[in-house]
Design a binder for these strands. Sequence first.
RNA 1: GGUCGAGUGGCCGAGAGGCUUAGGCUCAGCUCUGCAAAAGCUGCUACAGCGGUUCGAAUCCGCUCUCGACCUCCA
Length: 486
Amino acid sequence: MKQNLQLYNTISRKKEVFEPLHAPHVGMYVCGPTVYSDVHLGNCRTFISFDLIFRYLKYSGYKVRYVRNITDAGHLEGDRDEGDDKFAKRAKLEQLEPMEIVQKYTLGFREVMGMFNTLPPSIEPTATGHIIEQIEMIKTIIANGYAYEVDGTIYFDVEKYSKQYNYTILTNRNLEDMLANTRELGGQDDKHGRLDFALWIKAKPETLMQWVSPWGMGFPGWHIECSAMSAKYLGQEFDIHGGGMDLAATHHTNEIAQSEACSHHQPAKYWMHTNMLTVNGTRMSKSAGNGFLPGELFTGNHPLLRKGYSPMTVKFFMLQAHYRSTLDFSNDALDASEKGFRRLMNALSLLPKLVASEQGEVEIDPIRVNCENAMNDDFNSPVVIAELFEAARIINTVYDGATKINSTELDKLKNLMNDFVVDVFGLKDEDTSNAELNDVLDMVIALRKEAKENKDYATSDLIRVGLQNIGIQLKDSKEGTTWSKS
RNA sequence: GGUCGAGUGGCCGAGAGGCUUAGGCUCAGCUCUGCAAAAGCUGCUACAGCGGUUCGAAUCCGCUCUCGACCUCCA
């Protein structure tokens, strides 16, 4: 187990040494998607980042329980704690049951995450599956005096809570100003203070998703599900809580408040937030209408895209930036990542063909140390990629016979590439070659070889250019001709 | 207005007081090659601006300019 991992904690606003509460076990909770519509690329970035963290923690020897929820109830359109929730609205639009909406977009989400080759979480709980736990938690919060009922709706009393606890611990905002501002703006609400938020919301007769509670028919507020489910599966105190940066100010702030009001201590030791994906400098979001859907991305069928990009290209593109930096989505950047990724994959495919020498002139250990140091420094994947390109250069020069490697170092090289490219990054080659195509191309290459031997370069070039035009690139070498999709 | 963060070479993107010319892409040249492609080598040496601290600053401090996120639903 590595004891020198450092990660950035939003609460302290600095990097801290990672010390799990119960090593070697690590509990990590990440706020998952609200499944009322297709995920867009910005959503994916967060989950790809936490997949990287999950994978590296496992690489480091930790036994990780990774919980990522599916929000399938209680997420309202605005923060007014009134009106229908997003599922009901979408259900009306698509003329489906709310749970059909949930099912449809849950499956879609998992399919996309599968294409990005992310690992499934250890537990993927849903809000609707944990209504009882949420009700129990709300009852405790009321009993502890931090919530009040108004006509079947339960509100969290932020002002009272803030007298004993630090409500703005995550964002460092000035609570006095916030309270002052919101008092002026309020008025027609049932809440005592506009900072107060709903734990449980009274259902109208026509509300599609509603449950029995001590306060009548209703449904849970958005924030309570994460507090209830993280406590259930990871305990009242666990190691890492993560999510997108946009969740810190409201959702995570309220989660901490709920948990403290219930159990009197903070739920998570480390809070990690991933930065936003931007398009032309502004945040990709559903409401702004600048989000790419997976299908649009892969086919290139979108006004802002010149062409399509494969899931692995996009994932590689994301890993080339640090998770706490904004990342701007552009065609030029994607093109560069596509070529870089191909280069890395080509090197990887040469690895089994390398031949060891008696004497070697390269050492692999320093590269692994650099990779681990980079990951231990708050999961700095861009630096790891730079190291992997150094390894790729070694692979290429060994393959060309320009560098010699002994068998010990060759094994280390293979292990290094497997550990970081496959296990930690979850990257894989996407060449969708099949046996039939292989056979056909072998035959074509044999014909071209014959033409070349007869110095019939007109024919050999005809074959090469013809294949190139349909996206297959031939590469001649001393050992023969190979091909790849270009 | 408040809170936080960012401005790095043609592009993307790490670094955070001296010893990275990070890395990828692009471009130019060379090697290899029947021609290509791939690969390798070489070159393009940047840190928004102005001051300050320091023997030394992209990296610390101050000011200025520009941009973004959050403070309203959003990963």
